[in-house]
Amino acid sequence: MTDPTVNDKSRESLVTLIGNLPGLVTNLIQAEIEQLKTKAKHLGSYAGKGAIFMVIALIFLFFAIGTLVAVGILALALVLPAWLAALIVFVAFLLIAVVLALIGLSFFKKMSDDAGPVESVKKDLRAVKGVGEYERY
């Protein structure tokens, strides 16, 4: 004899099974979307907590660098007057800031050196016509 509890899926026709397929696919897609939402919530939570700890670590690093600067001033003050040691450290930081600013400025100037898209198209058209400056390969 057959078990009456097994009759529900084992005896369905192929047409019925194919008819159920869109509903099963829809349920599968909804389950996957819910899983992605849950994963995104967890990732967002972890990323937020990680960002908070990184900001706190950077704050402590900021103060640690200030302490290191104070140590440098105090070390120089052993051989020079304290005001001169502080002035030397200030000038050193000022020079570093000026050099970094000039390097940054050079990168900003390079941004304007590139031809815009309109100028590039005009240059290409002149090259196709055989007029103007263009590179030959």
Rank of each mutant, 00 (worst) to 15 (best):
P22T: 02
V98A: 11
L105K: 07
G132V: 00
T67S: 09
L24W: 08
L78K: 09
I59A: 11
V99C: 04
I56W: 00
V131S: 13
Y46V: 15
V121P: 00
V118C: 04
K122H: 02
S106Y: 03
A64F: 08
A47L: 14
E32N: 10
L58F: 07
D124I: 15
L24C: 03
M111D: 07
R126I: 02
L87S: 09
L24Y: 09
M1E: 11
V118R: 08
V79H: 00
T16M: 04
L78E: 09
L14T: 06
A97P: 01
L100A: 14
G23E: 07
T2W: 06
V98S: 05
A101I: 02
L87G: 04
K109C: 03
I56K: 00
A77F: 05
G44Y: 08
L125K: 07
L14M: 10
V131K: 14
D3E: 11
T38W: 10
L94H: 07
L61W: 06
P22R: 03
D124T: 13
P22C: 01
A40L: 12
K39D: 15
K109P: 02
A86N: 03
E32I: 11
F63M: 04
E32T: 10
V6F: 09
S106K: 04
G23A: 06
A57P: 02
A115V: 12
V131I: 12
Q30F: 05
T38F: 12
A64D: 06
V118P: 01
K39W: 06
V91C: 03
F93G: 12
V79R: 05
L95Y: 09
N27G: 11
K110F: 07
F62N: 09
V15L: 09
L78W: 00
S45R: 09
E32Q: 10
K49P: 02
L74D: 15
V79G: 00
A75F: 05
Q35T: 11
V6L: 14
A85E: 04
N7K: 12
D114Q: 10
L28K: 13
I18H: 01
V99K: 01
L68V: 13
L94V: 02
G132D: 00
L21R: 10
S10H: 14
K110D: 03
G48C: 01
I59F: 08
V69P: 01
A115C: 05
N7Q: 13
E32H: 09
W83M: 06
G72M: 05
T26R: 12
F107P: 03
M111W: 09
L74R: 15
L87M: 14
M1F: 15
L36A: 11
F108G: 02
S10C: 14
F63T: 05
L105H: 09
K123P: 00
L43K: 12
N7I: 08
D114E: 08
L21Q: 13
L105Y: 14
L84M: 15
A47G: 04
K9E: 10
S13P: 03
I56E: 01
R11Q: 13
I59M: 08
A77N: 10
A77S: 15
I29A: 05
L61A: 14
V118D: 12
Y134S: 02
S13Y: 08
L21D: 08
M111N: 06
M54R: 11
V15N: 07
A31I: 05
F63V: 06
A64R: 07
R11I: 06
V79K: 07
G23W: 05
G66K: 06
A92I: 13
I96P: 00
A31S: 14
